[in-house]
Design a protein around this nucleic acid. Structure first.
Length: 288
DNA sequence: CACTTGACCTGTCCGC
DNA sequence: TGCGGACAGGTCAAGT
């Protein structure tokens, strides 16, 4: 579900809503979602102040004053929604996509000292929250394996070209979804960027010209930045920290637009299967 | 080793 | 309406 723009949108929202607030208690509705002895977690975080929210790849990091950090992966259907102050005890905002909380997909909640509550909802239970000592975070195996952040200045077109060399014999769609090549792209933005660069998703990485990679680099940055501006994509479950939807999907050129016209050439967009994932292309613009 | 497939879960949608 | 099957934005372990 949430890819880089969605996770970044949640991060921005949480930064506004919960930084500086103190954790009073933790409620675990589903132990799979917070895989640790709950008593330990509750004891470690009680009384801790939330000092910063950051993001690496699709992972959110909620840093606490006690030198511990919550590491959170939303996977396909995870949501982090804050309810407090203005709407405390009064149901929910009218423009929120979700209703009264907790609901049946609520897995964990954090009660804050101001009366606000942060809810972790996750319909499919793939997502998780883990607590780590802050100093250990850079050494966690999956954190070490992540490729570069595509929106950082250090991510040049040459960096993309070099990173792609580790998956020369697979197709470009699978390579873009590989978080060790570059971090943060998922199914939506892989399809959108490949359409932008006019690349057929089954093209082998080793067949791509440098010129194609340059264009792909540009399109990756374009779609990710545009989506953050639009508050991410709400196709099904995704909502931001206020429970509101994102609007990138209204600007999508191919994703979930099968049967509709390609905005560039007017051909009918088709859906196919690549790297085990539903893949949307313009059969005229994107050819081998 | 590089790469692909199935499993993890719940919910929804589509065809019969 | 009911029921079975396919599918859904991510990532691993297990398979080839």
């Amino acid at each position: 579900m949430p890819e880089l723009p969605e996770v970044e949108t949640v991060r921005i929202g949480l930064q506004e809503l919960i930084v500086g607030k103190t954790i009073e208690s933790v409620t675990v509705y589903e132990s799979k979602s917070l895989p640790a002895p709950p008593h330990d977690v509750a004891a470690f975080v009680r009384g801790a102040t939330i000092t910063a929210i950051s993001r690496r790849a699709k992972v959110l990091l909620v840093q606490l004053s006690t030198n511990y950090t919550f590491v959170i992966h939303l996977k396909m259907t995870g949501q982090l929604v804050y309810r407090g102050e203005s709407n405390f005890g009064a149901g929910h905002p009218n423009d929120s996509l979700i209703g009264e909380l907790p609901d049946r997909s609520t897995r964990v909640s954090l009660q804050l000292s101001n009366g606000g509550v942060l809810y972790f909802n996750d319909q499919r239970k793939f997502g998780w929250i883990k607590l780590f000592p802050t100093t250990e975070i850079p050494f966690i195996d999956f954190m070490q394996a992540y490729g570069p952040e595509p929106l950082e200045a250090a991510f040049t077109t040459d960096v993309l070209y070099d990173r792609l060399q580790r998956r020369r014999r697979t197709n470009i769609k699978a390579a873009l979804l590989d978080q060790t090549v570059l971090a943060g792209i998922g199914n939506i933005y892989a399809d959108e960027a490949l359409w932008g660069a006019k690349i057929y998703p089954k093209t082998l990485v080793q067949e791509l010209t440098k010129k194609q990679v340059d264009l792909l680099w540009q399109e990756i940055r374009f779609v990710l930045a545009l989506s953050i501006e639009k508050g991410g994509s709400t196709d099904r479950n995704y909502v931001n920290a206020e429970g509101k939807r994102g609007s990138y999907i209204d600007f999508a050129r191919v994703f979930r637009r099968e049967g509709k016209d390609c905005p560039r050439c007017g051909s009918e967009i088709i859906k196919m299967r690549v790297a085990g994932r539903g893949t949307h292309i313009c059969p005229t613009c994107q050819v081998l």
